[in-house]
């Protein structure tokens, strides 16, 4: 699964740390999501898109062709 968290974060001009605090996770988790190393849970994904005030499809792109290596499990 791809995501545009970094893009929306840049558009909002906020740091990884501020986003992490706002959605209640560690900065390392935001880094892992942005790098595509970790797929967030549905709950965290909704928290992130709610923070950016966009729909979930705008930020997270599910591409069945490219199988994820990120998990979550």
């Amino acid at each position: 699964m791809e995501n545009r968290v970094k893009v929306y974060r840049a558009m909002k001009d906020i740091t990884q740390e501020n986003l992490a605090k706002s959605v209640g996770v560690s900065r390392q988790t935001i880094i892992a999501i942005e790098r595509g190393n970790y797929n967030p849970s549905l709950e965290l994904a909704f928290k992130i898109v709610k923070f950016f005030d966009v729909s979930i499809e705008d930020v997270f792109i599910y591409d069945e062709a490219s199988r994820s290596r990120a998990g979550p499990l």
């Binding site: 605090k21 209640g24 560690s26 390392q28 988790t29 892992a32 709950e43 965290l44 979550p72």
Partner: peptide, 14 residues
């Protein structure tokens, strides 16, 4: 004052 444990660390622990 930082989140140390979250869903990612839970998965890593598992």
């Amino acid at each position: 004052n930082e989140v140390i444990y979250d869903e990612r660390t839970t998965i890593i622990n598992h």
